[in-house]
Design a protein around this nucleic acid. Structure first.
Length: 287
DNA sequence: TGGTATGTTCCAAA
DNA sequence: TTTTGGAACATACC
């Protein structure tokens, strides 16, 4: 469910509750979510104090003392709750942390896609992750280099967490709309003004979404207001707020993709990539 | 019943 | 080697 802005909002909400607290117990109802093992997670967090709650990409990061690192990924349906009882179905409760003052942190996750990971340090756990899009390291030049390094369609490239960490399906569609770029555009064909526009669009949409505390969808994530400010995501068939054309919906890399056919025209080498994609789809259907 | 879903990872094919 | 599609993970909702 959550992308960078939602995870950032959750981290800010839980930071005052968690920082400084010492973990006295950890229990799970779903061992498969734990990495590398229940024993490792329990040994890694019980008895340690949370010195800092942070975010890296879509991971919630508990920095511990004595030094260690606990990472939680909410994936599609995970959420945190604070207190004795969870608001979710009791059967959806997957993990419980208890603290020295008997307070509890609950991890609810109906679809069981979420993950709880222990690692000795952050670098070990997140070494594969790409650049933080709101960090100083994410410059126009950096984005230009990332786009040139591959010859991929923009949408799957932006969703790849090894390239940029934190973008998901909603904000990728919104950033491409703001930049006026078609999702199928080949990444190595963008010209400098388009790269600058994409860079600005990514940062602007993420900052705005954080300001509005993310996008409320269903039970998975509540409290955000960004859903009222989305231009294309989830608006198939509705009018583009910029030009009035009907918003289109297509599958790109197995993900539902929303775009304005007039504001996001196809240019460059996309034709070749589109044809290649169609051939592969036909081959898959024949199999 | 079937299609879809804010995410990631594996495999096979091109 | 790089890129892509499909399936898988497991559940809820329309």
């Amino acid at each position: 469910m959550p992308e960078l802005p939602e995870v950032e909002t959750i981290v800010r909400r839980f930071r005052p509750l968690l920082e400084g607290r010492r973990i006295t117990g950890f229990d799970t109802r779903w061992k498969k979510q734990l990495s590398p093992s229940l024993a490792a997670v329990r040994a890694g967090c019980v008895g340690r104090r949370i010195v800092r709650l942070a975010r890296r990409g879509k991971f919630i990061v508990f920095q511990l003392d004595p030094p260690g690192c606990l990472l939680v990924h909410l994936r599609m349906s995970g959420r945190f709750e604070w207190g004795a009882n969870c608001e979710c179905e009791p059967g959806h409760l997957r993990a419980i942390w208890t603290f020295e003052d008997s307070e509890r942190l609950l991890f609810c996750d109906p679809r069981k896609f979420g993950r709880v990971i222990y690692a000795p340090d952050l670098a070990t756990a997140t070494g594969e992750l790409g650049v933080e899009p709101l960090s100083r390291a994410f410059t126009v030049a950096k984005l230009a280099a990332l786009l040139r390094r591959h010859r991929r369609r923009l949408k799957p490239l932006l969703l790849d967490q090894r390239v940029i960490a934190g973008l998901g399906n909603i904000y990728t569609d919104e950033a491409l709309f703001r930049a006026g770029l078609h999702p199928l555009t080949a990444s190595d064909t963008l010209r400098p003004p388009q790269i600058a526009a994409l860079h600005a669009a990514i940062r602007a949409v993420l900052r705005e979404a954080i300001r509005y505390q993310g996008t409320t969808f269903d039970h998975a994530y509540a409290g955000g207001d960004m859903q009222h400010r989305l231009a294309v995501y989830g608006r198939k068939g509705q009018r583009c707020p910029r030009c009035g054309a009907a918003i289109r919906y297509a599958r790109v890399g197995q993900r539902g993709t929303h775009f304005c056919p007039r504001c996001q025209p196809i240019r460059g080498r996309r034709r070749r990539l589109v044809r290649r994609g169609q051939r592969q789809t036909q081959a898959g259907a024949a199999r």
